[in-house]
Design a binder for these strands. Structure first.
Lengths: 336, 336
DNA sequence: AAATTTTACGAAAACGATTTCGTACCTTTC
DNA sequence: GAAAGGTACGAAATCGTTTTCGTAAAATTT
């Protein structure tokens, strides 16, 4: 039954509520002596201001939302950690919302936070997201948004990404250098910028190495493991099957390994594999997995920093820029 | 520049603000015709009530906090997903706080949410947490709390756990059946209930099989990978080294595999390994990993359900009970 | 010493909802 | 047809802060 209010505290300390509020906000209007008295009272009665009342009056919630498709994925959980660590330092609170890759849910969520619940948003769009009206609605309410990883290109704001094109290009080149003649690219969403960038990097490398078009293989995967399993089965059972794979998402790793095991295809002997992934276990897979490792934690931290800086300056129109934090190609046994 | 308030909407619709509020809350005081009129206005002007004003008045925030040690861990990320999915369905918002296994941070966090920011808390305590004063402070403010996985035994509330003792017992028995004579148990926190339960299950199985005390080896590990690496190096280099390992936390998996690789110890030939883990990649490790798989998602869902049920009934004293959702021992190559 | 400024505080008005209570009008009841 | 009850709304209080503004007393300037 704690819940002491500013009014009750004021009575006990024999000062006005205004004095308490000002003392707590370290206003110059309050003398040092009074401040100390108030602080002592606050400690004694364990008073903390009601955040709803405070937010209502100040029109600032000290809360941000992070809207992401998924959390059981090492990229997003690491990024979340980066974001949370900064928020905690700066005294911000973090609301988390998962879209489960659904455009519909993404819209509902943004609509739900557009009115004073949060001061800003950090977001990685769902793979289904094709237009940005719901995002515009947020910005019309003066809620700044910073994208990370999966960005909405057309929205003018800061975007923290990794060098998807370049790293995919390098990954492809790596496979080519190791002698692959027929490399398949496993794609996910057609909408996602990052997926297309990665595809383009892949295609560009193939072109530069004069790989003929019949060996350009882009395979569309889904969010369902079973479906992906059969797709990969087909891919790897065909006559002219690939001898190299670049998987654009982490989740495909298990599927690839399992299909290979089932079909008796040796990695890296008959098939070399690279995955865009932040799996901790990449080094201890069998064989250990060559990855394009994204700087997830850093991307989260950077995106959060940009957002908080804007919030603290009350500069709600964030500069339209792209911050690129490079990924690292970590070569391991799966491409030996 | 949206931010239309109830007052502005009232003017446009030519009704009082009370009418709008009541219409939106589907009060019987409002006629069907007026309700429809209000609803139409709400849609037209895209009005959503300010949550701070609403929470202040109603003394309910429709928000819960989830306080966990870590998120880059498959157990917690899956549990988080379970929690979020239920919260989203019921229209609750979820604040996330990470303690990074620090008792100090855990206290700061709980202190920060004790005053109206959240209606309830879902929590898994840090490995350092040794007393429950900070938790009592929450309950004194009538904020219900439900624990999952890592529970505070002395707090009287619902606790959703898995059968740590039993599953550890079974895991140990499995190793014994596979011929292990000297099994080491890798522990983490001395404070954590779950860690001790698992240790007890392990010890009990050893006793029942009349393994002499010199072959009871409990190794204290930490949260630091490098430290753990050297600890395991020592363990596995000694004369009388173990031929079986039960690791009580997922994070140790990589370390074990890497140390074995370095020392040239064959799994499962010379050392059989079981980990308490929810790793997706367990089946594709080399060798594939025998795990005690915890029902993380289900535990999250269950804990959330109990909390929300209590909140909706305004029954803030949650029954002191333990809900046990069993783990599954998944046998794979690492214990062949 | 009068005029001005500064210092330190309190009263009261917000912030945007919800809820209590009062009331006009319309139905029902005897 | 008067009394009683129901229906449908609005006025105003309220939630717990922050902030604006007013004002005594003290300090400074002329």
């Amino acid at each position: 039954m704690g819940d002491i209010t500013i009014k009750e505290l004021a009575q006990k300390l024999n000062v006005s509520i205004a004095t308490i509020s000002k003392a707590l906000n370290d206003s110059h209007e309050i003398s040092a002596a009074t401040k100390e008295k108030v602080l002592a009272g606050v400690r004694k009665y364990n008073y903390t201001p009601n955040p709803n009342a405070s937010s209502l009056r100040k029109k600032r919630s000290n809360t941000i939302a992070i809207v992401i498709p998924e959390v059981a994925d090492s990229f997003f959980s690491q990024a979340l950690k980066g974001i949370e660590s900064i928020a905690q330092n700066l005294g911000y609170h973090v609301l988390i919302y998962l879209t489960y890759e659904s455009f519909y849910k993404e819209r509902l969520i943004l609509n739900d936070i557009k009115n004073g619940r949060v001061d800003g948003v950090l977001m990685s769009i769902s793979s289904e997201t094709s237009n940005s009206l719901h995002i515009k609605a947020l910005r019309d309410r003066n809620i700044p948004i910073v994208f990370f990883d999966r960005v909405m290109e057309e929205t003018e704001t800061a975007k923290v990404v990794t060098d998807d094109y370049q790293s995919s290009y390098k990954a492809t080149q790596h496979l080519l250098e190791r002698g692959c003649q027929h490399i398949a690219y496993l794609s996910t969403s057609k909408h996602l910028m990052i997926s297309n960038e990665r595809k383009d990097g892949y295609l560009q490398a193939l072109k530069e190495h004069h790989i003929k078009a019949s060996k350009h293989t882009v395979v569309q995967c889904s969010n369902h493991a079973e479906y992906n399993f059969t797709v990969l089965q087909k891919l790897l059972q065909q006559e002219d099957r690939p001898d190299g794979i670049i998987a654009s998402i982490e989740r495909l790793t298990s599927t690839i390994y399992l299909v290979c095991k089932e079909l008796g295809i040796a990695i890296p002997g008959q098939l070399k594999v690279i995955t865009f992934s932040n799996l901790d276990t990449a080094p201890i897979l069998s064989p250990s997995l060559t990855t394009v490792s994204q700087p997830a934690f850093e991307m989260g931290r950077t995106a959060a920093s940009i957002l908080f800086k804007a919030l603290q300056k009350k500069k709600l129109n964030i500069k339209n820029e792209k911050i690129v934090i490079p990924s690292v190609l970590v070569k391991r046994e799966s491409t030996n």
